[in-house]
């Protein structure tokens, strides 16, 4: 009996220890694999080849021609250069280095800003009139930059297109060799135009662009409440109705930015306003 117990004890110990080794190894492997999977989903948009990006730029260029068909371009070289300096500094802190961002001013008193895929961004003269410092301007441009870096229009249009053609990327959809390619292209431009001027972006895309803009402000050194202060002024002055109904309620946006700033310990943190420079470059116009 005693001999039997002695015989079994080491075997049991060995089994126990091997099981422990196996369980630990399996757990860590599965954790690491899950972590890798989550990181590989960092950007869930699959169409990121050079062709797709070129197609996105061509598409954005044509959409911009439609935007400028609706509102005339303000051809003020000095002011446009200033907007480009601020916008390009912001866009370099975002995550799409392959895109050349370009900024233009729309000659209208409407208070709004727009972006087209491929890096084309427009701000209205009415919006510039209401801005009080460079941090606010940077915040508004940051919001539009985010729509492009997050490919909000591209994704929305592509989602619908892939229902019909699941193997197609953005490049193939607008550069297809079929005779109807130009019709498809024009239809997509119409859809994008509707998003900009009629339907608006999805609410979550707008809120996400607000938080990205606030992140960019904090990263560049501007006052991180730049966009928040501008939206509050819009709300206080009752300008919400002037925004063509393409943005979610200002109150929702203001609350979401305040929560984001609070969570990130940005509330009350100082940053550059550059009020004098803004007045010198933009308000003197």
């Amino acid at each position: 009996m005693k001999r039997k117990a002695i015989f079994y004890t080491p075997i049991l110990w060995l089994i126990f220890n091997l099981a422990f080794l196996f369980a630990t190894f399996t757990f860590t492997s599965s954790y690491a694999s899950d972590f890798r999977k989550r990181i590989s989903q960092l950007d869930d948009y699959p169409y990121r080849t050079e062709d797709d990006i070129k197609a996105e730029i061509i598409f954005g260029r044509e959409l911009s021609a439609r935007i400028l068909g609706r509102y005339p371009l303000l051809k003020d070289k000095t002011l446009t250069e200033y907007i480009n300096l601020v916008g390009k500094a912001m866009s370099q802190h975002a995550a799409r280095p392959e895109i050349e961002f370009r900024f233009g001013i729309l000659d209208t008193d409407t208070i709004n800003a727009f972006s087209a895929p491929g890096g084309y961004i427009f701000i209205t003269k009415g919006c510039l009139k209401l801005i009080e410092d460079e941090a606010e301007l940077a915040g508004i441009l940051g919001h539009e930059i985010a729509h492009i870096t997050e490919r909000h229009i591209v994704k929305e249009i592509n989602l619908k297109a892939t229902d019909e053609s699941p193997i197609s990327g953005f490049a193939s959809l607008i550069a297809g060799a079929t005779g109807s390619a130009e019709v498809v292209f024009t239809t997509f431009i119409d859809k994008a135009y509707e998003i900009l001027f009629e339907r608006g972006y999805k609410k979550e895309d707008e809120l996400s662009s607000d938080t990205i803009a606030t992140t960019l402000l904090a990263t560049t050194g501007y006052d991180s409440s730049g966009l928040l202060r501008f939206l509050k002024r819009l709300s206080e002055k009752g300008h919400e109705k002037d925004m063509e109904g393409t943005h979610p309620g200002l109150e929702n946006r203001i609350r979401a930015i305040e929560e984001y700033m609070e969570k990130n310990q940005l509330t009350g943190k100082e940053g550059a306003l550059l009020k004098e420079r803004f007045y010198e470059k933009a308000k003197a116009k």
């Binding site: 061509i58 598409f59 607008i174 550069a175």
Partner: peptide, 9 residues
């Protein structure tokens, strides 16, 4: 494609 679409537009 864009040029053809431009014609349409």
């Amino acid at each position: 494609t864009a040029a053809a679409a431009r014609g349409l537009m």
